[in-house]
Design a binder for these strands. Structure first.
Lengths: 211, 211
DNA sequence: AGGTTAGTGTCAGCTTCTGTCAATTGACAA
DNA sequence: TTGTCAATTGACAGAAGCTGACACTAACCT
């Protein structure tokens, strides 16, 4: 909370995120131009690109916050847990503060609808996936350090993280396509999918319920 | 193999793919403009966009072929196998014909280097991921039919496919960053990663070797 | 108060991609 | 062979995303 300059900067940034989200949600991502966003906020187009690396970046401003919290939670897990447990526990502890973290940037309802926009817009799906892989790299590195492994030769951390990440994305899509667009609903779907992860790989496919 | 018209069309398409791959590999993807490709093939820029939906599409022309073969192999698996086995067996049977399938479009060495370009170019990584999810959807649908499940309520097919897909992408990246850039090398890395998939989820992390 | 600097606007330009229309060329029947 | 039709292409114009350069304003510091 320093000078006026930084506060102003924060305000224009917030305004850009807010307005962009509203336009994306109401008109669609592809249909919204950067010029429309900047006109609504009354800044130049050039300024927009000084705040965000691209039109896509502003769509993931909230996601950035959430993911960084999850990452921190993983780092904070005690070393006694198995890697798989550490990931799940970190996820659980993240759910608690997630609501407020989102609300700090945009209303939660808006973020929910933005999530659906992301999941249904091919260009944004692509970016979402790329971001996931980047997060996977970081998580795999953390797990490798936890277990004292060489990340270049031992692929176990990466494989574990990749499966987790894949399941979480599946859960995210399932949730976005459903009715219950609450955080609690998302949590339930995700837990359910993670419970399925182990049994589903076995040959006795039916050892777990599908629904 | 019908009229002259179709042959001509195929030739320009092949030329575009070939030239694009060579330029991407030598100069990099971002550094290569569509104009450079079309000038080398001597067609108008407009023609390029009639053959490919975008600059990215031409980079995945070969991948398209390979993935569709894998899909067909999954569909062709006998119903007796568990879903997880069906995926692995389909993968095994795909490796055989993969080499020729690639060679039909571009030299294999070129495709290998193109793979590395894809893995190291953020924009292409993003597209690659999006394509993976689309393939996942199709595979999940196939598995759901195989097992007679309702794909909307039973998430097991999707979860299984998501884990598989994640592991295969991990393997692909590991292979691309290594030394042995042969198809056989890729196959080995992928098999290894898939073997890790089950044990890695358990709490006795060390029940499998890392290397 | 005055110099410094971060932040912004303006402008000019590049690249990807699309719509449109006229011209060309292969296909096919008379 | 010739004429007609449809498919393919090229040329042009233009929108949208994005970047570099430069000047200007306003906050900051002494």
């Amino acid at each position: 909370m320093t000078g006026l300059r930084e506060r102003k900067k924060q305000r224009t940034r917030d305004a850009l995120v807010r307005v962009a989200h509203e336009l994306f949600v109401t008109h669609g991502y592809e249909e919204t131009t950067v010029d429309e966003i900047t006109e609504a906020v009354d800044v130049s187009q050039r300024t927009f690109f000084r705040y965000f690396a691209g039109k896509e970046a502003v769509a993931f401003a909230v996601q950035d916050e959430v993911e960084s919290r999850f990452y921190d939670a993983v780092v904070a897990r005690p070393p006694g847990e198995s890697p798989a447990r550490a990931l799940r526990n970190a996820l659980n502890s993240t759910w608690a503060s997630m609501g407020e973290a989102i609300q700090d940037v945009v209303p939660i309802g808006l973020h929910m609808r933005m999530w659906q926009v992301i999941e249904t817009t091919p260009a944004l799906v692509a970016v979402h996936m790329r971001r996931s892989t980047e997060m996977e790299d970081q998580l795999a590195a953390v797990l490798a350090v936890r277990e004292g492994l060489d990340p270049h030769t031992d692929l176990r951390p990466r494989v574990l993280v990749a499966t987790f990440s894949g399941v979480m994305r599946t859960a995210g899509r399932q949730w976005g396509s459903g009715e219950d667009l609450t955080l609690e609903g998302a949590r339930q779907v995700m837990d359910h999918c993670l419970d399925l992860m182990g049994p589903v790989l076995s040959d006795d496919w039916s050892s777990c319920a599908g629904e």
